[in-house]
Write a protein that binds this DNA or RNA. Structure first.
Lengths: 143, 143
DNA sequence: CTCCTAACTTATAATCGGTCTAAATCTATG
DNA sequence: CATAGATTTAGACCGATTATAAGTTAGGAG
């Protein structure tokens, strides 16, 4: 959870461990994701990696996030009706989602127990379990 | 679960009970949804209500589904990265989601127990809890 | 080195679900 | 019938994502 800093080599090792060829752009995107540990849309990532130091195209950002998710380096969150979020935190956890602001908050999965789920259909392989608690702040600043 | 048929008047009563003015288009959309009880995208509904008998515009379909969800006549499912699904089944339940085909399957919530969830942030009001089990059929027809 | 190939990145066009807009229609009421 | 408010509509528009096709890069063979 705490924003650990990763060295260039550590990032490269992470990618390799997940079967990802560590190109400059992929390392840069991974660095941004893992140096912050939040919830990012592709547009967010695109903004993060395009600055004075680095330039990465939009197509590469989308491709790379998809690749990372496929290789299980990060997790895809389908929670907002308009866009996908990506979560570099691979420790099992769930989410609060504020339906007004779109803000996501982690829920530690350690304490959460889900029992009584039926078996998967025959031949099916589990990809993941998403638990999303949708909530709304009781108009805090309404007047 | 079993596809009960609703009379025109029953549909109108349902809408009124949820504070929805029962216009012709809304009744038609509700009839299609409740006569089948599945999981529908807006495009699905648009196709269902546009036939020899009836014509409803795309804008009205989107507006009406949004209204129905807001009034809790149906439930919005955010589970597919590309589009929203609507579920006329308001009995609490969860979903299997086949990440390849996009097919949704109901999971009866009666047996499912979720414990250990933290309290909502102060002032927050729960909108709903979504449990989605993402799975993949082990390539049944690959060759 | 230089060539070659495969992997990768890029700019840009295209797609697609969904929303917006402004006009038309409907409905209830006086 | 006139009016106002709610609703519907066609079509323009938007924003997230994907597709396309060309350009770049890295590494091995000669």
């Amino acid at each position: 959870m705490e924003p650990k800093t990763y060295t260039h080599d550590e990032i490269i090792a992470m990618l390799r461990e997940h079967g990802i060829n560590p190109t400059a752009q992929r390392v840069e995107i991974a660095r941004e994701l893992f140096s912050r540990k939040g919830h990012y849309s592709a547009e967010d990532v695109f903004a993060l990696v395009n600055n004075d130091q680095t330039q990465v195209s939009k197509a590469t950002v989308y491709n790379t996030l998809g690749l990372f998710a496929e290789k299980r380096l990060i997790r895809q969150l389908i929670v907002d009706p308009t866009k996908v979020f990506y979560d570099p935190n691979m420790v099992p956890h769930h989410h609060f989602y504020d339906v007004v602001t779109g803000k996501l908050t982690d829920i530690d999965a350690n304490d959460v127990r889900i029992t009584g789920l039926p078996a998967l259909p025959p031949g099916a392989q589990m990809e993941g379990v998403d638990v999303i608690i949708r909530m709304r702040q009781a108009n805090p600043t309404a007047g």
